[in-house]
Write a protein that binds this DNA or RNA. Structure first.
Lengths: 348, 348
DNA sequence: ATGAAAGCGCTAACAC
DNA sequence: GTGTTAGCGCTTTCAT
């Protein structure tokens, strides 16, 4: 609506609003811009009188420093970038929220990017964020292999911490110990008497998916070698869960337990089992992963793995800001919590 | 890791890496910085030879413009701010994702802020975003009254569009017609034979909550005046749903249908009804709102209202960018879709 | 303790 | 067409 420009206007006409500059504050206060800056930042001592005049003028003009100019000069934008594979994946919103909160406690803003699980896009995003001179970056690399170059590129320029997913081992990382968590799931199922398993997951190339799968294989091999190969990979969706369950049932060889790499998939499986008249947990036990709201609301309630999302986000933010992200490595592995619910409890 | 500074170094020592400046490209190509800029932006015609040399030099040095400097000069940062009350509310991630995608198609980044449903924080965030000279702002005001000043402040400085929630009527807005949606819910229930209702909602001061409530009252009044007053307000959570259901049951006066302002609440209600042995939909019909994944997964599947989230996000982004946000007003009301499922279907 | 001046990296006016 | 110059708004030497 309003004109945006202004400048000092040689003529002498009235200006149209435009945020006041430090210069204008200086003039109003009868001091130099440098003094204003010093007062506002407490960088160096300033005479009480000038200080007072400056403060008054600043307040009167409602002065607020232009962060862009500040950034150019100080080489710090007060922003941090975050790149995640899929904002709509219920795992991330909570992490994002925690990150944003922690950043803001330090006066830093979050530049959020969704890579859409696409390595090319992801790399592009990282480059673009660097162009914007973000002060750091939180990166959830979508591909544990192909994302490596992007991670390295960015890590060479700004503090970087990998979050949830890891592509490069000597760059800071924060997430949960996926293998420990999945092992715990299997141990629990074995304790419930299960011996034959099937694993429903996605073809995701994320490090987390790989770790969970590895743990699954390692853990089931002990009790039934062939179960280690009974793996169904599709996408992290209800529909894939349904499709996988269909296949499992069709094969006419129902395992004792179906282990899922994620809650959505598990609920898809559950849906089909129910429609086939196969009861959970009576005929087959079922587990999910992530412990989204879905898990507790399902019927029967779904055993799942709860990750400390807020903690991951907060710690990630702390690391980028404090540059605990700079040195060789720095791994912050949290422990997930197995939430045992009816879907995996054998009736006594 | 690496040193960040460099500058032209009067001594003549080798520099440590630091992104190349336009000046360095110019020198390498034997042209002026202005020419480089012109080549890179195609702002004005440049002789093919110089053009080629420039391009080569830029590529060789791997030159990428410093967006901060660019922003200072051009008064455009290539960023848009977004303020939402609660990132973890399953409604927002999808909208955010759509916004981010649309922005990126235009080379614009998203500065995401979570106000935590706090008007003070919200105002602070808006001011801070303005300091960062964002090119526009997408605002989901948490309070239809107290958020007005923040909306007005920001709208006076940059293109602003209210998203989902509206505080100021003469500022651009995009969302769904809440009243129409809620009316449709009630009409459906009436058609199913319901006459006596209860409404479970939150004390939220968001415009959407007010609109849904108003529509509920208006619609039920027609068939049963007292139902218009049977309103339970708490928070948008499973627990509040449980608490509200408990109260409703305790009152010993079960309505024909319990209408909920959101899916989480509805599932909380469902949970308690089930534990009390009250069957849905046989003894009481139930509806939610938002049609999150929860709704379709619940048992029985929950009738809910699906909002075109991606469309809202995309349109919001389009508006800020195209500054369809500038003039007096501009309201983009989408229509929600009633998803009728078992929870509100009377057995024939 | 304070001001003048330089300059962050870029683009746009203005000359040629 | 192209280079030179000025300047976006700020912070920070460097003198005083």
């Amino acid at each position: 609506m309003q004109g945006q420009r202004c400048a000092t206007t040689r003529g002498g006409r009235a200006e149209i609003s435009s945020p006041p500059t430090i210069r204008q504050v200086a003039e109003a206060a009868g001091v130099s811009p440098a003094t204003v800056s010093r007062v506002l930042h407490g960088t160096r001592p300033v005479h009480p009188d000038l200080r007072a005049r400056t403060l008054t003028a600043a307040q009167q003009l409602n002065y607020r420093a232009n962060r862009v100019a500040q950034a150019l000069r100080t080489r710090s934008t007060g922003t941090v970038g975050m790149v995640v594979p899929n904002v709509a994946n219920p795992f991330f919103p909570v992490v994002i929220q925690a990150v944003e909160n922690e950043l803001r406690r330090h006066g830093v803003h979050l530049l959020l990017c969704d890579s859409g699980d696409d390595v090319r896009e992801e790399a592009e995003l990282v480059r673009s964020l660097l162009d914007h001179r973000i002060d750091g970056i939180l990166f959830s690399p979508c591909d544990r292999l192909s994302s490596q170059s992007a991670v390295r590129l960015a890590a060479g320029r700004v503090p970087l911490v990998q979050i949830d997913r890891q592509a490069v081992s000597d760059v800071a990382y924060v997430g949960v110990d996926q293998e420990a968590a999945m092992s715990e799931v299997i141990e629990h199922l074995i304790a419930e008497g299960c011996r034959r398993f099937a694993y429903v997951s996605s073809t995701s190339r994320a490090s987390t998916a790989a770790e969970r799968l590895r743990a699954y294989r390692r853990a089931v091999k002990v009790v039934h070698a062939r179960s280690a190969e009974r793996v169904y990979q599709g996408t992290f969706s209800l529909d894939w869960g349904r499709a996988a369950a269909q296949r499992i049932v069709d094969e006419g060889d129902l395992p004792d337990a179906i282990v899922c790499a994620n809650d959505s998939v598990a609920l898809g499986v559950l849906d089909v089992l129910r429609s086939k008249g196969l009861r959970v947990p009576e005929e087959v036990l079922l587990t999910g992963f992530d412990d989204t709201e879905l898990a507790s609301i399902a019927w029967p309630p779904l055993t799942s793995v709860r990750q400390p999302l807020e903690m991951i986000g907060r710690k990630g933010a702390e690391l980028v800001l404090g540059s605990g992200a700079v040195p060789g490595k720095s791994v912050n592995l949290f422990k997930a919590e197995l939430k045992i619910r009816e879907s995996s409890r054998r009736r006594a």
